[in-house]
Computed example of a mutant assay.
Amino acid sequence: MRRRRTGQVMLVAAGLLNLLPGVGLVAPGRASAAYGVDIAGADLETLMRHRALLLALVGGLAVLAAFRPRLRAAAIAVNAVSFGSFTVIALVTPAVNTELTRVAWADVAGLLVLSCGAVLLGRQDT
């Protein structure tokens, strides 16, 4: 029981980390500050808002999956891809700014929390 609850808390925590950028959907200026980039023009703002929506969906799935075992495999997979892909892209891109480096480290932490949650939940609830 304790193992399952701890795993659920970790899945929720990882989900919230991916949900957090969803604020950029309604407040693009927040994304600009968080990523340290100038969101100049409607085109870039649209792309950043779309990114915020997708991350919110991914994070929301993890939060939901903490309480719906049948969704866990998919939620863990898409959240891991989300965290891991940004981290890799940031690593291979030269001269990434300080804010994006901080976001990449947050994604590393999110991936670790997600992985620990996945291990704790295991296959016990499927």
Rank of each mutant, 00 (worst) to 15 (best):
R51G: 03
A75M: 10
L57D: 08
I39T: 05
L44D: 11
A80D: 13
L53K: 01
L47T: 06
A75S: 11
I39R: 09
A80H: 03
F67R: 10
F83K: 03
A75K: 05
G60L: 03
V78P: 04
L55R: 13
A73C: 01
A42L: 09
A77M: 05
A42P: 06
A42E: 15
A62Y: 04
V78R: 07
F83M: 03
F83G: 09
G60R: 10
G84P: 01
G60Y: 04
L64V: 15
L47C: 00
L61Y: 12
R51C: 01
R49V: 01
R49C: 00
R49K: 13
V81R: 02
V58S: 14
T46A: 10
V58Y: 10
V81L: 15
A56F: 11
H50Y: 08
R70M: 04
A65Y: 10
E45I: 04
G41D: 06
A52F: 01
L57N: 00
L54A: 03
M48D: 01
E45Y: 05
V81Y: 10
G59S: 13
L71G: 06
L61T: 08
I76Q: 12
M48P: 00
L55C: 07
M48T: 11
I39Q: 02
V63M: 11
E45R: 12
G84H: 02
L47F: 10
F83Y: 15
N79V: 09
A42M: 04
H50I: 02
R70T: 06
A62F: 04
L54K: 02
L53W: 03
I76F: 13
E45H: 03
G84Y: 05
F67G: 07
A74W: 08
A73T: 13
L57M: 15
L54N: 09
A56M: 10
A40C: 01
S82E: 14
A74H: 09
D43H: 12
H50E: 02
P69C: 14
R49S: 02
A40M: 05
N79P: 00
A80Q: 07
L53H: 00
F67H: 14
G59E: 11
P69Q: 15
A80E: 13
I76N: 08
R68M: 13
I39A: 03
R49W: 01
R70P: 05
R72G: 09
G59N: 09
A42S: 14
G84D: 06
A80P: 01
N79Y: 00
V81H: 08
L64A: 15
A52Q: 04
I76Y: 07
L53Y: 07
L44T: 09
E45V: 05
A52M: 01
H50R: 08
H50P: 00
A42V: 10
L61P: 03
L64N: 00
V81N: 06
R68F: 06
A80S: 14
A74Q: 14
A66H: 12
A73I: 07
L57H: 00
V78G: 05
H50L: 06
